[in-house]
Simulated scan of single mutants.
Amino acid sequence: MTQSNPAVWPTLQAHDAPALIDYLVEVFGFVVGARYGDGDRVDHAQLNWPEGTGGLMMGSYKPGTDWCREPGSAGAYIVTADVDALYARVQDHNADITRPLGSTDYGSREFAVRDPEGNLWSFGTYAGEPRQS
């Protein structure tokens, strides 16, 4: 099955979803694909990664609902073609860098950041191993 749209969407919730959306757009470069809700409430937001078909979905923290997750407990790895430029951008925004840019033993250049809600974001050049038929 060939698919042109992403089929895997990491999801997270935030205490201050509008502020986190602004942060992810300004600091990391995500692009808002959709946003629904009124005022400070975000019922659903789609943030697209500009370098490919991936993205994430997020919304405001809603305790007691069947799809509730504790804000600040998510983690994601995002592939970027220009990790050096993204690292410079993150540094320019004084982001909370938890692992500085460096090379790994599996051939990637990566760094990690904690967002204002506490989620961990790792950015690197490792695009995964080729799929086996």
Rank of each mutant, 00 (worst) to 15 (best):
R41E: 12
G107H: 11
A14I: 00
S133H: 12
W9T: 07
L47T: 01
E110Q: 15
I97Q: 03
S73E: 10
W67T: 09
R35T: 14
A76C: 15
R89W: 01
G118D: 06
Q3N: 12
V113L: 11
C68T: 14
T53Y: 11
Q132M: 02
R114F: 00
R41I: 13
A112Y: 07
H93L: 05
A19Y: 05
R41Y: 08
S103F: 01
S122D: 12
Y77C: 07
Y87G: 05
L120F: 07
E51C: 10
G64T: 03
S133Q: 13
W67M: 03
A88M: 04
N48P: 04
T53W: 07
G39I: 08
S73R: 12
L20N: 02
E26F: 00
E70A: 08
D92C: 04
D38P: 03
A19R: 13
G54F: 05
H44N: 04
V31T: 15
E70K: 07
N119T: 11
V31Y: 01
G75M: 13
S60F: 08
I97W: 00
G72C: 07
N119F: 12
G72E: 01
G55R: 06
W121M: 08
S60L: 06
A112L: 08
L47A: 02
F111S: 11
D105F: 15
T2K: 14
G102F: 01
I78A: 03
E70V: 15
S122C: 14
L56E: 00
G52K: 10
A14P: 01
G29M: 04
A19M: 03
G59Q: 08
S103I: 02
P71W: 10
L56N: 01
G54Y: 06
A17M: 06
W67L: 05
T125S: 15
G128M: 06
V31P: 04
D38E: 15
H15V: 08
Y126K: 10
R89A: 14
T2W: 05
N119Y: 09
V27E: 06
W9N: 09
A45T: 08
M1R: 14
G37T: 13
A34R: 13
W67G: 00
S133G: 14
G59T: 03
D84C: 03
L120H: 13
C68Q: 06
R89D: 12
Y106Q: 02
A85E: 09
E26A: 13
A95H: 07
A17C: 15
R131M: 09
R131G: 05
W49M: 12
P63A: 05
V42S: 13
D84V: 10
E129L: 11
G33K: 03
R35N: 12
K62P: 00
